[in-house]
Structures are given as structure tokens and as C-alpha cells.
């Protein structure tokens, strides 16, 4: 499942050096205990948090929020992307507003979302939804647009009804791009979630870091950061793995599509011809 080149021994060299330096600095007493705990103290904090089940609880809270918000983003983002890719004219309606909204970081909306959706789960779902819906919609639209014109012509020549065009051409033809959108969206939503939990929450990994700060528990803060990084990485690896596993056999050696645009193009012109109606 893992890419060999990415997770070979070289990948461990720098982390090991950092840990070694950290260990040596701690062992020789050169770390300011109040600001920078030793690696042993962080490990103890990890054992304490897992032992009491606190860490697991925070992780489950965070993940279930992501699941709901991300699910809503799929439900809205994929159809919206398909619409924009399938009917390019619809981009006149959605394009500009989408490009405006995706420039605004999800964190900028947190205060407003708190006001609108309350301090509970609603505002977190909204932040996650906001963070992931744009990459999903935009990548889906791109994927649909990248389906070769040759295949669209086949669907026209065979008079395929809309439903069949969707299931036999559009979804399989843009599958890889949709999946890339999901993967990017997941990364974005994970990051946005932590920010939301830091600002207003009573559970989750972001909350763990903020509450540890108020108790000046730097060791627990570092445990929270490590958990966020590892879980994010794990989710991404999971996505890549699923994507690879679902990579259809045809993609490994697909037939090259000829560059025919509108029937014959004269060798003298050779450029893309556009119809005059």
C-alpha cells in the first residue's frame, strides 16, 4: 500500500536525528523544562492520556466531525462539479462566486459560523464542509472537462440518455479527478477542524492543545500536535491506497486517443477547428 520510494529507510534519517538531538539536549539538562519538555516527558504524557482514554476520546470526536462535514461536502461538491463540467454554461453562474469563496480561508468564517450555527457541532460541520467542498467541486469539474471529446461524440452518436451518460461516461471518466478532489478536501477539512476546535470546543484534538496551554502542559500540547500530524498522514495514506487499489485496469494501459477534433483537419492548418454556425 505504501509507496516504497516514499517510505524507505531514508525517510527515517531526519526524524531519528531530531529525536536524538532532542534526547541528548534533554539528558544533558539543556532544555527549559517549562517551555520545552524532554522526549521522555512527552512520552509519559502520551501514556497518561491514552491510559485514561482521553486521547482516544478526542480523536474520535474530531474524526466523527470530519466524517459528517466531509460527507456533506461530497453530497454537494460532486454533483456541483459534475454540473459545471457537463454543462460549461453553468460556470457563468457558479464560477465567480466559487472562486471568491474559496479565497476566504475557512478559519475566517469561524466567528460567523459560531454565531449562526451555535457553539456546538453545527459550526464545526460548517467549517469542515466549507473547507472541503471547493476542492471537491473544482476537481470534479476539471475531471469531467478532461474527458476526451472523442468519447462525448460517441455518447452523442449513440443517443445516450442523460442517466447513461452520467453512469457510463462521466463518473468513470472523471473518477480519478474526483478522488483527487476528495483527498485534497480531506486534508483541508482536517486542518480547518483543528482550528475550529481551538477556538470554540470542549473536545477534539484542537481542544486538547488549547486546554493544555491553559494548564501550561507543553508535553500534552506536543502529544496533540503529533496526533494531528500522524492521523492526517494516515488518512492521506489511506486515500492514496484506496485510490491505487481502485485504479481500474484500463488506466494502466489505456488506448491512446487520437487527436481528432472535428473530423479531418487539413495538414496545412492542423490547428483546432471551430465550427461556424
Amino acid at each position: 500500500m505504501l509507496e516504497k520510494a516514499k517510505y524507505s529507510w531514508q525517510a527515517w534519517v531526519i526524524p531519528c536525528i531530531v529525536i536524538l538531538i532532542w534526547f541528548v539536549l534533554g539528558a544533558t539538562g539543556r532544555l527549559n523544562a517549562g517551555v520545552f519538555p524532554t522526549i521522555g516527558e512527552v512520552w509519559d504524557a502520551f501514556l497518561y492520556l491514552t491510559g485514561k482514554g482521553l486521547l482516544t476520546e478526542h480523536i474520535i470526536d474530531s474524526l466523527s466531525r470530519v466524517l459528517v462535514g466531509f460527507g456533506m461536502a461530497i453530497v454537494v461538491g460532486v454533483p456541483l462539479g459534475i454540473l459545471m463540467g457537463w454543462i460549461p454554461a453553468s460556470q457563468i453562474w457558479f464560477g465567480p462566486i466559487l472562486h471568491f469563496l474559496r479565497q476566504v480561508p475557512p478559519t475566517a468564517w469561524i466567528p460567523l459560523f459560531l454565531l449562526w450555527f451555535g457553539i456546538g457541532e453545527g459550526s464545526k460541520f460548517a467549517v469542515i464542509f466549507y473547507a472541503s467542498v471547493f476542492p471537491i467541486a473544482i476537481n470534479t469539474a476539471l475531471g469531467v472537462q478532461q474527458i476526451p471529446n472523442e468519447y462525448w461524440e460517441v455518447s452523442r452518436a449513440l443517443c445516450l440518455p442523460a442517466g447513461k451518460t452520467l453512469t457510463k461516461l462521466i463518473l468513470p471518466g472523471s473518477f480519478q479527478a474526483i478522488f483527487t478532489g476528495l483527498r485534497l478536501g480531506m486534508g483541508m477539512s482536517w486542518r480547518a477542524l483543528v482550528a475550529a476546535e481551538m477556538l470554540a470546543s470542549s473536545s477534539g484534538l484542537g481542544y486538547l492543545i488549547m486546554s493544555s496551554r491553559s494548564l501550561a502542559r507543553v508535553d500534552e500540547m506536543l502529544v496533540g500536535i503529533a496526533a494531528i500530524g500522524f492521523i492526517g498522514m494516515f488518512i492521506d495514506i489511506l486515500f492514496v491506497g484506496v485510490q491505487k487499489r481502485m485504479l481500474p485496469i484500463w488506466q494502466l494501459r489505456s488506448e491512446p486517443v487520437r487527436g481528432e477534433v472535428h473530423g479531418e483537419t487539413s495538414p496545412a492548418v492542423g490547428k483546432r477547428l471551430q465550427e461556424v454556425q
Binding site: E150, Y151, E153, V154, A157, K168, L169, P172, G173, F175, P248, W250, Q251, S254, E255, V257, R258, E260
Partner: peptide, 10 residues
């Protein structure tokens, strides 16, 4: 068509 244009995923 000149090329078969079969859908590669079917």
C-alpha cells in the same frame, strides 16, 4: 469512427 473509441472503463 475512424478510431474505435471504445470506453476503456467498460
Amino acid at each position: 469512427f475512424q478510431d474505435p473509441r471504445l470506453f476503456p472503463w467498460l
